[in-house]
């Protein structure tokens, strides 16, 4: 669906993107993570054809954004970091203008009405955009991206500036959109990307530092498995029992969580839930909680940012 091949981009002497390549398949929801100035927006701007790369190629549905921009752009709905809104227009007039601009061939009124209902702006259709709150403006921006039902949606920080209730609503909406569209989402909020996206790319200093399926990157898929346990009993005795369970490669003590209950994190290369259960039960301790624990995306992100982890997940 989207193929980005070896794109590079420099602003003067500063290299903003250095040989960035990735591929997004139909129906994927891809999260784009990176610190400020890492190259997220530049990548998105190149994919959408707003700016050009110095070298490399972007293909949307097999069509090059450089050689066949008109056709390639028809497949993209783009919500930039700052929604491109004409403040002097009403929401309805603006959406009609964008409908015409995108050369959409659907029944105008029905299509706009259905999008307004989907993003929750039906009640402000007649209002002038400059009088809308930040949350509504963001939704109008999303509505214009959805016009024409494009197969690819590119959303640059769609939840920035929204209140917590609006953020939850927006995430729900993006998840719903992910069922029918290929979505690229950039965000600073790591939990948001983890909650919404099934693939993640972490970009650092213009280079891809990590990419892969979310669960794999966070360690809850393949590789080391981590289990969080809360067990009732004496801490040292529990520790001795856990230590002797076969295939346990590491134990982290996290202290008392409630009276008489202690938290541990067990690491292993295999699924040892059954043997752990049997060992703890035989020792007459009570298991209050057993939960798989992935490495948080935050840990991975911070490690990449500090340069300790390179090329992971490739």
């Amino acid at each position: 669906m989207i193929e980005v091949k070896h794109i590079t981009k420099s602003y003067g002497r500063r290299c903003a993107l250095d040989d960035v390549s990735f591929r997004i398949n139909k129906g994927d929801v891809l999260g784009f993570l990176g610190a400020n100035g890492a190259g997220k927006s530049t990548t998105m701007n190149i994919i959408t054809g707003y700016i050009s790369s110095d070298s490399g190629e972007v293909l949307i549905n097999g069509k090059s954004i450089l050689d066949d921009p008109t056709e390639a752009k028809k497949s993209i709905g783009y919500l930039p970091e700052m929604p491109p809104l004409y403040n002097d227009m009403t929401v309805e007039k603006y959406l009609k203008f964008m409908f015409d601009l995108k050369k959409v061939r659907l029944p105008m009124k029905e299509h706009i009405d259905s999008i307004c209902n989907k993003v929750g702006i039906a009640d402000v259709k007649g209002r002038i955009i400059k009088h809308l709150s930040k949350g509504y403006r963001q939704r109008v921006g999303l509505a214009q991206a959805l016009l024409g039902d494009p197969p690819v949606l590119i959303l640059d920080e769609p939840t920035v500036g929204l209140d917590p209730a609006q953020i939850i609503e927006m995430r729900k909406l993006i998840r719903e959109l992910g069922e029918k569209h290929t979505v690229i989402l950039s965000s600073h909020v790591l939990s948001e990307v983890q909650a919404v996206c099934d693939k993640i790319i972490i970009i650092n200093n213009g280079k891809i530092a990590a990419q892969g399926v979310t669960d794999e990157l966070t360690g809850s898929g393949k590789g080391t498995r981590r289990l969080r346990l809360i067990i009732e009993g004496r801490e040292q005795s529990i520790y001795s029992v856990l230590k002797n369970v076969d295939k346990v490669t590491g134990i982290e003590k996290r202290g008392e969580t409630e009276k008489g209950c202690y938290e541990f994190v067990i690491e292993s290369d295999k699924d040892i839930r059954r043997s752990l259960y049997r060992a703890i039960s035989r020792s007459d301790f009570n298991i209050m909680l057993m939960q798989p624990e992935g490495r948080s995306l935050e840990d991975l992100f911070l490690k990449i940012m500090s340069g300790n982890e390179n090329e992971e997940g490739k």
């Binding site: 959408t48 054809g49 707003y50 921009p69 008109t70 056709e71 752009k73 028809k74 993209i76 783009y78 930039p80 700052m82 491109p84 809104l85 004409y86 403040n87 964008m98 601009l101 995108k102 050369k103 214009q144």
Partner: peptide, 14 residues
């Protein structure tokens, strides 16, 4: 100034 050029330049209009 208002970044509405992004809407124009990413639309299928040359």
């Amino acid at each position: 100034k208002n970044k509405t050029d992004q809407a124009l330049l990413t639309s299928p209009v040359n």
